[in-house]
Amino acid sequence: MADTLKIASWNINSVRFRIEIVERFLKEEAPDVLCLQETKTVDETFPADAFRRLGYSYQMLNGQRMHHGVAILSRIPMVEDNRLDWQANGEARHVGVRLENGMRLENVYVPAGGDIPDRTLNPKFGQKLDFLERMIAWSETLSVPTLLVGDFNVAPLESDVWSHKQLLDVVSHTPIEVETLGRLQAANDWVDLGRHFVPPPERLYTWWSYRAKDWAASDRGRRLDHMWASKDVAALAVGHTVHESCRSWLKPSDHIPIVTEFRL
């Protein structure tokens, strides 16, 4: 029996369109649990059989037609799924489960927030900030071992973006988003596992725009994808990997998978 638990998170940007690279990743890395964001499909058309063939027979889905959508696929049992409406409009942006070891696993897709960092001119930006405020209120009530993963759509640190100065007014790195995410982290004293294993100011990105002709050469990345652990869960973490090579795979997502391994 394995003495570690490997959990992966990936904004796949359409699971049906990119099922081939998901299968490749599962075969090569074999995580015990995979959390997906932006699946972009209703539950009825989710490619469940493809995951079952690879041993991921436990599946918790929260899908939506053409937009958003989250899923947790697992080789180990999980129970008590829930779907929290932090967007307050019914969008499929969260699914949570409890694993056999008692850990809560919460998978979230935070809204991108549009292009203008002003809630008056751009209601989507206000919705994003309100979403994070609801997460803060939820976080303050937690009392069980919890791992919070997903696409937070915020790169909080200067070393989480290719140019802090040039992105200060760009949604995902604005001061108000960084401040709000900081309050979310403080609300449960979350440990940012990415920066626990890769301390700043070391470069750490998980997303590169499709607009770049050569994403690797320009390297204008941002760290939008995160894994945060309550202190009891963080104490069990033994490694964190950012799979940057996946950005060069056939029909890639603009995000890459991140993986943390925990001692059982």
Rank of each mutant, 00 (worst) to 15 (best):
L204S: 06
W215E: 01
W190H: 00
T206M: 04
P200W: 09
W208C: 02
G194R: 00
W190G: 04
F197N: 08
W190C: 04
Y210V: 02
D189N: 15
L204K: 08
E202Y: 11
D192R: 03
A187Y: 08
R203T: 14
L193R: 02
P200Q: 10
Y210W: 11
T206A: 08
P200M: 06
W207I: 01
T206D: 02
F197P: 07
D192P: 03
P200G: 12
D192S: 02
V198I: 15
V198C: 12
R195S: 00
Y210A: 09
G194W: 03
Y205E: 04
D189M: 09
V191I: 15
H196Y: 14
A212Q: 14
G194T: 00
E202P: 09
A212E: 13
D214M: 04
A212N: 14
Y205K: 00
K213T: 12
Y205G: 08
L193D: 03
D214C: 03
A212I: 07
D214G: 06
G194Q: 00
L204G: 09
W215R: 15
R211S: 07
W215G: 09
L204C: 04
A216V: 14
D214T: 12
H196W: 10
E202Q: 15
P200R: 08
R211V: 10
K213V: 07
N188E: 03
D192T: 01
D189V: 12
R203S: 14
A216D: 06
D189F: 12
N188C: 07
F197Q: 05
L204F: 02
T206E: 00
H196V: 07
Y205I: 01
R211N: 14
N188A: 14
L193N: 07
R211H: 13
T206N: 02
Y205V: 06
D189L: 12
V198H: 15
P201E: 08
W215N: 07
L204P: 08
S209T: 10
A187P: 05
K213D: 10
Y205T: 05
R195N: 01
R211K: 15
G194N: 04
R211T: 14
V191W: 05
L204M: 11
P201T: 12
W190P: 01
G194C: 03
S209K: 06
D214S: 11
A212V: 09
D214Q: 10
R195Y: 08
P200C: 04
W207P: 01
T206W: 00
E202D: 15
F197K: 06
L204R: 13
P199E: 06
P200T: 11
S209P: 05
V191H: 05
G194V: 03
R203G: 12
L204A: 05
R195H: 09
Y210F: 13
R211P: 07
R211F: 03
W208H: 05
V191L: 06
V198M: 10
A212T: 10
E202N: 13
W208S: 02
D189Q: 15
S209N: 04
A216I: 10
H196P: 01
W207Y: 14
K213I: 12
